[in-house]
């Protein structure tokens, strides 16, 4: 193994779990698509690494690359037709976390992307707008929509009391 392999693999191992978690949530927990996103992110990052100026952390930059890759893939019409199988998520820590992950996965694509980036990963609206190529107002309205849908999905039906 060369030292270059060592270096790349060290970077891969440090940052891929974060990239994969983000990819998994953006794709509605589609493991195959999330792995493809991670692979394409590293390929794209290799090609574009001269654009990394160190103004953000390497992880933030890589996450931005992944979001861009995701955006381009969603725009491909064939992918919208060829809906992937949804596989069960990684073993949940408890039922509440499992319900929450499922509810996030069930959000509509656009609203889910913005909800995940804002409420799970803490990006600001202006950063999301730049990443996704939308205006800030769209980011805010989609977030509100996602929150409403999520609350509704996690609320017990009227008359039913959850244990």
């Amino acid at each position: 193994m060369t030292s270059d392999d060592d270096l790349f693999r060290a970077l891969y191992r440090e940052h891929t779990p974060a990239l994969y978690a983000l990819g998994l949530r953006l794709t509605g927990r589609d493991q195959h698509e999330a792995e493809d996103l991670v692979q394409e992110t590293w390929v794209r990052a290799t090609r574009q690494m001269s654009t990394f100026r160190g103004e953000s952390s390497l992880r933030t930059w890589l996450c931005g690359v992944l979001v861009n890759v995701r955006r381009e893939r969603v725009r491909s019409a064939w992918r919208m037709v060829d809906a992937p199988d949804i596989e069960p998520p990684s073993p949940p820590r408890d039922d509440a976390a499992f319900d929450l992950e499922r509810a996030i996965a069930a959000l509509p694509n656009g609203a889910r992307d913005i909800f995940v980036l804002h409420d799970v990963y803490g990006y600001a609206h202006h950063e999301i707008a730049e990443m996704l190529g939308v205006v800030e107002g769209t980011s805010k309205s989609q977030l509100a929509r996602a929150r409403t849908l999520l609350r509704r999905a996690l609320s017990p039906p009227s008359g039913e009391v959850r244990p």
Binding site: D5, F8, Y12, Y20, A21, A34, Q39, V43, T46, V120
Partner: peptide
Amino acid sequence: ELPLELQPDPTLEDRVVRAV
């Protein structure tokens, strides 16, 4: 409390290295 890091399939590492 949602985990921000999740481990993918271990075979992905070699796939990515080959692709790059």
